[in-house]
Each structure stands twice: as structure tokens, then as C-alpha cells.
Nucleic acid binder design. Structure first.
Length: 578
RNA sequence: GCCGAUGUAGCUCAACUGGUAGAGCAAUGCUUUCGUAAAGCAUAGGUUGUCGGUUCGAGACCGACCAUCGGCUCCA
């Protein structure tokens, strides 16, 4: 028996239990999902966490009754009659009928009948009784549309054995400890304060050090690949945003304009328009192309209050942005180059797992997008071509495109497995049209340029958040804000400790001398909590032999070493990681 | 924005059914100079998220707002 089938059957059992406990319930839908299942209910009252054990108990009781799942095929008419008091089910039946179905299938277990195409377990005795748990209650719009009523969703997790469930719950619990918000607080990296504003990030000194390292590495790699670094203002004349279509298609994500001497200025939600203006500054030749402008550009977007999530989703963030202007026949090469850069950077920062989406238009709602069909098809084809050529696994998602073009999105995964969009590559024929962006081709004729929008990390905020969760805060040596602590055993070793500190700081290492009047144990404990890669203890022996006693993070004491030898060792460690 | 939960010292948490806020860590001062995950003593620290209401009396009850958390919708 497939676990998905069991999960789906559990969703039905849960619905059955809810029906028994709340007879007037209207039912939405209840599918199996990753690790479990959910079901949406329209209930006479709000559920509280205390309801979950009651429902769970009822479910177990029902499972023990060895109830059979019976499938039946019904005519549309008959189905409508059976579900006459179930408005959501009626809506589904109506839709099935409209799509040409003559009959629908239903499943009955005990006294609970559900519209469902199955499959299900034959009997509840096939369901392991101790391998599931109801985990949370949440609101969810009927059919995922915010204009529809909100139903109450109960989530559950389910596995084949009690042990698998216990393991899963343990892993989840452990993962929650790697939450970037927790790590950010513990390691004093950043904060978000009510006094400053929701979604506005304060980077503390140590967070800023990490960001600086990331940015430095990013700049170096971009310079190598022929990018030009630019700086652009944070506000711009609103006419620019009107022309691009932002005020029409992107309005709900923008802060309202500010009026200065009869002109409205817009806080930028994107960097592209400024880069467009740099491109437009003079006539460009085909010999100049591709032109790659890049900028760590800070943008502000109005995000609905309910979606903010630490630094993974703030309202102000810095994109590692770039706009590439190229000839049409350079698209695949450029997209390909960007993909290579992305995978190189991600692996340099230790990311092994990511998902790739090809985000295209919603074919049913073309009014959400700028530009005509032909242009869109061309852009979508170009992106898909490169993905296929690189043999990368991707999922095509309709309706996920930006208003000006389709994109390749790379999603990084957080501690508890939630995907967050980071890197993105977007082919855009629309802005070049809107802003009349050209170059002079080999024949001396004006030709339309192609624009590629891209970030390879996503944003500094989101990237750091994912980075912290990936490493559980224990960043590799090259990224650690504090790499080494020198801990003198007693007051008489302070002087030597000082010289040791200097030997490392002279070589560019981030090293702190911990010479306060506290015990060695205390400082070791503090160092481990602060996730310092190396703690160097120096006492009488080390002073005599010009060495250090090395303690490696998580590993413990790895022995005494000459200062020179340790220096060499960490240099190698840093080179290797890069 | 929507549904639900939460908000007490810098951090982690206490305070019985309403009776006037307490502990550990951190901070500061003194003592201790210490060999691999917490030395000792003392001091200071709070309009209990904000505003309003109920009450003789509110951290606790009610309302509005703000923020956070889990989802939904939306997104880098």
C-alpha cells in the first residue's frame, strides 16, 4: 500500500471524525500532501488547539472499527442530490459536469460520504493507528482564492510506522532550532524592531561582516565574468514607473509616491529602470554587447503584513541584481552563463539542494502581463531551451511569471523544508520595447536589444537567512564573523595571547582576544555557543613552545600546534572552501 | 490582507479561580587568575506591546490598534 493512499484515507477519516463531532460541517477538499494530509472544513465555530486531540481520538476509534472504503459511481444528478447540503461539493460536481463528466465517483467510509476519485485503502484496518498525528489548524481560502470564504484547515502528518512518525517529529523539532530568526538573535547578527517598522532589517556588526564577505565574493566573481558595477538612486521620478507599467501591474507592491516640488517620486521596488537609463545614455553598437550592469540594489516592496517572515521576507531588501543587454542571438549564451554563475555561487556557499521552476504566464489571465503573445512565446522558449540543454531538472509553473517576462526561478529550502525563491533569471523583450532600447547592428541599422534581468543569490537578506538555516548557524571558516578566539589560561599568559592574536589578525583573520577575568571553561562554553570555528587556549606550555592548543568547533580539543602550523592549516581550509 | 495563536527585565521563562510582578542567564561593582561547555558575593534593571474600558482593585477580564508565530493568498 502506498503511503499516499493511506494519507488520503486518513484525510477522509479525519473528515468523518469532524462530521461526528460537528454534524453541521460543510466539507471542502482533503488531499494527501508531503508527509501527511489536510482537510478543509466550514465549521460552526473556530477550532482551538485543544480540539485536535479530541479529533485524533475519534479518528483512532473509527479506524479500530475496521470500516470498509466503498467506491460508487454516480450520475451527476444523483451526486447533486447526495451532496445537496454540501455547497462546496456541489460546486465541484458542477465543474466536473461542465468539463464533460457524466458521472462522478464517491467513497463511503462508515457514515461519511465524499466526492473523491480515490484511491483509498480497502479497510481502515490497513491504516497504522499510531503513525499519524494532527499537527496544526490554519485558515485557508476555498480553492485558494482570497475572494472566497476562508475555511479551517487541519493538517496532519502520517507515516507507515510509529517509529517513522517519531523520527519525523524529532527532526522537525531539531530543525526548528535552526530557524534563522533564532540564530540571528543568539549570534547577534540582525534584528527587526517594532520601533523601526515591520519588515525592516537592522544588520548588526557581525551580520554586516557576513554580508560583506558575501558581497565581496560576489563582486569578485562578477568582475571575472565581465559585469560592470553601478550605483543608482533609491527613488526615481514616477513617470519612469508609469512608462514601464509598474504603476499598472505592480502597484500593490509599491509604497505610495512622495511629492517633491510638484513631481511625484517613487521608492524603487526594482532596480531595472535605473539600469535601463544607463544603457540609454548613449548609442550602443553590436560591438558593445553584451553589456552587463550589476548592482547590490536595495529595493522596498510593500508586503502584506501576514507574509513577513524574519529576514527571509522583509519589506526592504538588497537584491544582487543585474541587467544584461544583449543581441537576440546572444540570449542562450547569456542565460547559460548566468545559470553557471548561479550554480557556482550556490555550491560555494554550501547549497546542495535547490528546486528549479520555469515560471511562465497564466494562459487564462493574460491581462496580468505586459506585451504580446509572440514576444512571450519567444522568451519562454529561450529559457526552456537553456534548461533542456543543461539537462537541469525543472518544473514548469503557469502563472508564476513577472509582468514583463517569464523566468527561471531557483528555490532554496529553509530548515523545515519550506522553499524560498532566491536566484531568478528573466528574459524580457517588453522593457526594450517600452523604453525603445536599441543597438546599431553590423548592417548599420538600429535593432532592438534584449534585456535579461537576474539575481544569482536572490537578496542579501533571504540569502543570509537560508545560509544560516543550512549551516545551523555554524558557518564555515571563511564566512564566520569571528573565526578565532584566543583564550589565555591565566593573567600571566595575556601578553603571549596578545602576540598570538596579532599574528592571526596581521594575516587578515578575524580574531578576538578573550582576556576577561572568567574561567577558561566559561569562555569555551561561550565560544561553542557563539559557534566560533576555532578556540585557541594558551597557557604555560604554549608560551614555552610558541604554540596554541586548538579546539575545533563541535569536535573539541584537537591538540597542541605551533602557531605557524595552525596558520597554514586554516589558510588551506579557507582556500578549499572557496 | 485573511483565519488562528501569542506578546511579562537585553535573553529564556514564573506569577493559583483578578489582590498590586519574580527567577536564571546577560549587564555593572568587588573578590577569584583559573587548562577545554556556566567561579562567588553584591547592585541595578519593568507604565507587564500600545490605547481605551469593566472593577474597590487588572499582567490576568472586554474592545480597538501594533508586532510576532503557524497557515492561506501573494513574492526575491
Amino acid at each position: 500500500m502506498k503511503i499516499e493512499t493511506t494519507r488520503h484515507s486518513l484525510a477522509h477519516i479525519m473528515a468523518y471524525a469532524v462530521q461526528e463531532l460537528f454534524p453541521r460541517t460543510k466539507f471542502g477538499i482533503g488531499p494527501a500532501i508531503e508527509n501527511g494530509f489536510y482537510y478543509d472544513f466550514d465549521l460552526p465555530r473556530s477550532l482551538t488547539p485543544e480540539d485536535l486531540p479530541k479529533i485524533e481520538e475519534k479518528m483512532k476509534k473509527l479506524i479500530k472499527e475496521n470500516l470498509t472504503f466503498r467506491k460508487r459511481l454516480l450520475s451527476i444528478k444523483k451526486a447533486k442530490e447526495i451532496f445537496k447540503n454540501q455547497s462546496y461539493k456541489l460546486e465541484l460536481i458542477k465543474e466536473l459536469a461542465e468539463n464533460g463528466s457524466r458521472e462522478v465517483s464517491i467513497y463511503q467510509v462508515g457514515n461519511f460520504i465524499d466526492l473523491c476519485k480515490g484511491p483509498h485503502v480497502r479497510s481502515t484496518k490497513e491504516i497504522p493507528i499510531n503513525a499519524f498525528k494532527l499537527t496544526k489548524i490554519a485558515g485557508a481560502y476555498w480553492r485558494g482564492n482570497e475572494k472566497n470564504p476562508m475555511l479551517q484547515r487541519i493538517y496532519g502528518v502520517a507515516f507507515k510506522t510509529k517509529k517513522e512518525l517519531a523520527d519525523f517529529l524529532k527532526i522537525q523539532e531539531k530543525a526548528e532550532k535552526r530557524d534563522h530568526r533564532k540564530i540571528g538573535k543568539e549570534l547577534d547578527l540582525f534584528s527587526i524592531k517594532e520601533e523601526v517598522g515591520a519588515g525592516l532589517v537592522l544588520w548588526h556588526p557581525k551580520g554586516a561582516i557576513i554580508r560583506n564577505i558575501i558581497e565581496g565574493f560576489w563582486r569578485k566573481e562578477h568582475r571575472k565574468r565581465g559585469y560592470w558595477y553601478v550605483y543608482t538612486p533609491h527613488i526615481a521620478n514616477i513617470k519612469l514607473w508609469e512608462k514601464s507599467g509598474h504603476t499598472k501591474f505592480y502597484k500593490e507592491n509599491m509604497y505610495p509616491p512622495m511629492r517633491i516640488e510638484e513631481t511625484d517620486y517613487q521608492l524603487k521596488p526594482m532596480n531595472c529602470l535605473a539600469h535601463v537609463q544607463i544603457y540609454k545614455n548613449k548609442i550602443r553598437s553590436y560591438r558593445d554587447l553584451p553589456i552587463r550592469y550589476c548592482e547590490l540594489g536595495t529595493v522596498y516592496r510593500y508586503e502584506k503584513s501576514g507574509v513577513l517572515h524574519g529576514i527571509l521576507r522583509p519589506r526592504g531588501f538588497t537584491q544582487d541584481d543585474s541587467h544584461i543587454f544583449c543581441q537576440p542571438n546572444q540570449i542562450t549564451e547569456e542565460v547559460s552563463g548566468v545559470l553557471d554563475l548561479t550554480t557556482f555561487l550556490l555550491s560555494s556557499f554550501g547549497f546542495k539542494k535547490y528546486e528549479i521552476d520555469l515560471s511562465v504566464r497564466d494562459p487564462k489571465n493574460k491581462s496580468k502581463y505586459l506585451g504580446d503573445d509572440k514576444i512571450w512565446k519567444k522568451a519562454e522558449k529561450a529559457l526552456e531551451y537553456v534548461l533542456k540543454k543543461k539537462k537541469l531538472k525543472y518544473i514548469k509553473v503557469e502563472g508564476e511569471a513577472v509582468f514583463y517576462g517569464p523566468k527561471i526561478d531557483i528555490k532554496l529550502v529553509d530548515a523545515i523544508g519550506r522553499p524560498w525563491q532566491g536566484p531568478t533569471i528573466q528574459v524580457d523583450f517588453n522593457f526594450p520595447e517600452k523604453f525603445d532600447l536599441n543597438f546599431i547592428n553590423q548592417k548599420g541599422k538600429k535593432q532592438r536589444v534584449v534585456m535579461i534581468h537576474r539575481t544569482v543569490l536572490g537578496s542579501m537578506e533571504r540569502f543570509l537567512g537560508c545560509l544560516l538555516e543550512n549551516y545551523g548557524g555554524a558557518l564555515p571558516l571563511w564566512l564566520s564573523p569571528e573565526q578565532i578566539w584566543v583564550i589565555p589560561v591565566g593573567a600571566r599568559h595575556k601578553k603571549y595571547a596578545q602576540t598570538v592574536r596579532e599574528q592571526f589578525s596581521d594575516k587578515g583573520f578575524r580574531v578576538e582576544l578573550k582576556d576577561t577575568a572568567e574561567t577558561v571553561s566559561k569562555k569555551i562554553r561561550e565560544g561553542e555557543i557563539q559557534k566560533i570555528p576555532y578556540l585557541l587556549v594558551v597557557g604555560d606550555k604554549e608560551v614555552k613552545t610558541k604554540s596554541v592548543r586548538v579546539r575545533k568547533r563541535k569536535k573539541g580539543d584537537i591538540g597542541e600546534m605551533k602557531v605557524e602550523k595552525f596558520l597554514k592549516k586554516i589558510k588551506i581550509e579557507i582556500e578549499k572552501k572557496k
